[in-house]
Design a protein around this nucleic acid. Sequence first.
DNA 1: ACGTAAGCGAGACGGTACGTCGCGTCTTACC
DNA 2: GGTAAGACGCGACGTACCGTCTCGCTTACGT
Lengths: 211, 211, 211, 211
Amino acid sequence: MSQNSPLDLRVRRTRKLLRDALVALIAEHGYEAVRISDVCDRAMINRATFYRHFADKGHLLVHCMDDVFEDLQQRINPPPRRAEEIDLSAGYQNIVTLFTHVSEHAAFYRVMLGEAGAGAFRSRIQQILERVLEQRWEQARHAHRHPPRLAPALTLRYQTTAMIGLIQWWVEQGCAETPLAMAQAALDLMLHGVGWAFGLDEALIAANITV
Amino acid sequence: MSQNSPLDLRVRRTRKLLRDALVALIAEHGYEAVRISDVCDRAMINRATFYRHFADKGHLLVHCMDDVFEDLQQRINPPPRRAEEIDLSAGYQNIVTLFTHVSEHAAFYRVMLGEAGAGAFRSRIQQILERVLEQRWEQARHAHRHPPRLAPALTLRYQTTAMIGLIQWWVEQGCAETPLAMAQAALDLMLHGVGWAFGLDEALIAANITV
Amino acid sequence: MSQNSPLDLRVRRTRKLLRDALVALIAEHGYEAVRISDVCDRAMINRATFYRHFADKGHLLVHCMDDVFEDLQQRINPPPRRAEEIDLSAGYQNIVTLFTHVSEHAAFYRVMLGEAGAGAFRSRIQQILERVLEQRWEQARHAHRHPPRLAPALTLRYQTTAMIGLIQWWVEQGCAETPLAMAQAALDLMLHGVGWAFGLDEALIAANITV
Amino acid sequence: MSQNSPLDLRVRRTRKLLRDALVALIAEHGYEAVRISDVCDRAMINRATFYRHFADKGHLLVHCMDDVFEDLQQRINPPPRRAEEIDLSAGYQNIVTLFTHVSEHAAFYRVMLGEAGAGAFRSRIQQILERVLEQRWEQARHAHRHPPRLAPALTLRYQTTAMIGLIQWWVEQGCAETPLAMAQAALDLMLHGVGWAFGLDEALIAANITV
DNA sequence: ACGTAAGCGAGACGGTACGTCGCGTCTTACC
DNA sequence: GGTAAGACGCGACGTACCGTCTCGCTTACGT
């Protein structure tokens, strides 16, 4: 039997060691501060070998992100096949899944979304969330009574960056709340707005719409 | 005493040249890609002189950010002196001011919030917004009928990161909308939520609250 | 014994390919510039296979030199069996043989004696010539009227390096002269000196001996 | 007073340290075996600084050779201004000067002419000697009774390489003989030939000319 | 002739040196 | 006294070549 695995065992081992070392070091010192030689030392991989696999630190980072996001995509992506179930519970499920996934990579998310993280990470997860949210919105379109009240692109950006903010806050707190609680909070904020969350009186809110 | 007199003209000139050069170069190549020697070349300042004023690139960046945020703080910070005017119009005014300020530094915001920007910038503006929003929320507290429905820290983070997302989206579009339109959109999203913006039926929203 | 049986066909083939490749590449780029991987590419031999046969580039070079010098030794070495024939014609014959041999490996000699050649080659051929010349001198000793007028070691070195100089000059010229002409010139220089070759007057030479 | 010296003191110091280190290390390990980092370590110069002065090892070597050969050229070059003194004593003086110079750089010559030396050195000194000898031969031309009996280029090469052989032999012996003795031997070999030095009978030599 | 031990191709890997780049410090000379 | 010019130590970078090491395949040799 010839091994039909795509890559030599040694190759996979080397890449995994490098990935793990990078993640650990970013968590310790931040992305920019990590030197390729540090990664190699930690991974116990020769520096020349690093360059046989990745052109530079950024490529290894992408490799790491692929690792994380692949997991996320596989759990979130499958959209509801039966278009009739337009309730938001599927969306809620997705949000729960998202927070669960985050909690499983909490350390990575904490540092990557932090000040010392890599901008590429934030923009990539933002795109992923945007794509997912847009898809769901497209599928739910016929259930709407009204046309969109604001430019969808704007709304999408608002919601996705806000979600990332929630995630960042949560992992900074050490994931104190359960993923379900976070998902519920996210859904509430999405549906009722920040004013509601702050406890503003509905009448006050309604009154100020016209301002 | 000459100590507290405004700095030597040459010093101020040098620092301004360096600031301008850094901003221009970040806009062209991104923060990390900018070399101190590039900044000096652009500013036509000797590299040794740079080090007489700033310890490193980060310190110059802080200097630049101070320049921008000082402007913002001065326009936004003054809280409503008369606590009785608890209408949201003051908040709305603040938001207009914010977007106006952003439009005046659009290039800077675009690159600094982008993938190639500096993480420090994003986190700093986030803190500023959080502080302002928190202040306003504290002042408006007695006007609320209800206690906060979600943890205020969470809500704050949600709203401020969402605002930054809006800003980023806006400057990426070239500030096509007016600051007033953006402020109105921001306020609407804040008060009515994303579901409303997407045009979801209120009944549907209400129904799913219980999910 | 299988040990001294001629080597496996594959082994001989591999070594020959490597030898030829090295010689060709030295001729093209000089000894130091040749990389082992270049040799392997040219020879269409895997690099790992190279190391199964030679420890490094130097060992392959020695292998190549053995190839060349073995030919030379076999043609020059057999000293005059009958000690009575002490005429110089046998020495002359040897010199003719030497230049003939050189002409048959002209390309190799040209590059190996040139600036980009291997020092080991020059010193090895120098030793060979020195051994041959010393042998002949020992055999011709009883025909001398006089004891050596200069330290034999010095004279030997003078003559052998001069011969190598002649060879180098000749191959650099593309072996324009016949081997016989070169041998005659070498013998003339050996017997009559450089002054004579330049056409200096004998009286002048004699006069200046005392200087 | 502005210093009219061509180079900053630090620059000259750095280059001298590197030169000395290279010479010492070549003497110890041979040219090819010397690593640039070795040179820098020995010279207590940072490796990056090396590259600010020399593109590679070869350029530093040339710098070293210039140092040595400049000395030689200045002592040997000035040709006899008064063309009437065509005796060979001036040539003899030159040869004495050459050997004296060599004895002052004996270690350098020993290793550079040895197997581990640099081919460039040998070929460069060969060219220098050739140029000097050719000059003298041109100036002495009208004193000759006869036209050259062999191609001057060939004779030049013979003599210069032989001289280098003598030099190499001498420094290998630790310069046991005096420079004067070596110069006399060189002149004798030049004027009377190798056969004479070996003590061959003149009649024998004469008889074999016709061979 | 044919099974087997060898020679061999492929290529990952650890290592060492290379030449380059940018940083931050320092000295020197100028104005 | 501030500045220009630039040498210097430092350390990371990305590249190149070396020599070693599996792991299978195939090929010449010995019985």
